[in-house]
Simulated assay, not measured.
Amino acid sequence: MEPFKNLTSKVVPLDIANIDTDQIIPKQFLKLLGKTGYGEYLFFNWRYDQQGKPLEDFVLNSSLFSGRQILLTRENFGIGSSREHAVWALKDYGFKVILGVSFADIFYNNCSKNGVLVIKMDKNTIEDFFSSKTNENFEIDLIQQQIKINSKVFDFDIDPTLKSYLVNGLDEISKTLELGNHIKKYEDKHKVSVETESMI
């Protein structure tokens, strides 16, 4: 997983609340092997008509928002089933940061485990972003926990453990592997104790 420290990008404004994971990545696309290849199916039912043609009025199909790496959304993003594929689809499409009011807990944690920064802001701030900031550059500074837009600075909170994972490019498995020497010492000591007891 690549370390995340800062990013500058404009946002893709997805002005919809209560988006569940089945809309993020419909269940018929969960059969791919690995974590890549899901981006083309992101928000599939909203992006394409029944013939598979792009719907012009959906935000991801607008050339204006092409290449942007920050998704701006509203309340209750990522609700529904706990499928990690939803995060894989967002990341594979190119999103590295998701801004919103609130997120499902499992989705939030899945994002951090996959190198996607999720930032919670109050409702009024998100409303301001939608109404006046969608064509401005957002400078995301994870180390300082700040969003800078022109001369304005917005602070955000993040769990210190999740922040550490993102900054260092670690997930739970790689974090455990970092403790390999400590684990080996514990196992060697425990092994000696067990062998001693068996001789008694």
Score class of each variant (00 low, 15 high):
M1T: 01
E2A: 07
F4K: 04
K5R: 13
T8G: 03
T8S: 15
D15H: 10
A17K: 10
I19D: 09
D20F: 12
T21R: 10
I25H: 02
K27S: 15
Q28I: 05
K31D: 03
G34A: 01
G34F: 08
G34P: 08
T36D: 11
T36W: 06
T36C: 01
L42I: 03
R47P: 02
Y48R: 01
Y48A: 09
G52H: 10
K53D: 09
L55D: 04
D57N: 15
F58L: 03
S62C: 06
L64N: 04
S66E: 13
S66Q: 11
R68D: 07
R74P: 04
N76T: 10
F77C: 02
G80H: 06
R83T: 02
E84T: 04
A86I: 07
L90F: 02
Y93I: 05
G94C: 04
K96E: 14
K96T: 09
V97T: 10
L99S: 02
S102A: 07
F103Y: 15
A104S: 12
F107K: 11
V116C: 04
K120Y: 04
M121R: 09
D128Y: 12
F129P: 09
F130M: 08
N135D: 15
N137T: 06
F138G: 08
E139A: 12
E139L: 11
Q144C: 13
Q145R: 07
Q145G: 06
Q145N: 13
K152A: 15
V153I: 15
V153Y: 08
V153S: 10
V153H: 02
F156P: 05
I158A: 11
P160H: 03
V167N: 00
V167M: 13
N168V: 13
D171K: 06
G180I: 02
N181P: 11
H182D: 13
K185Y: 07
V192S: 00
E197V: 03
E197C: 00
M199N: 08
M199E: 11
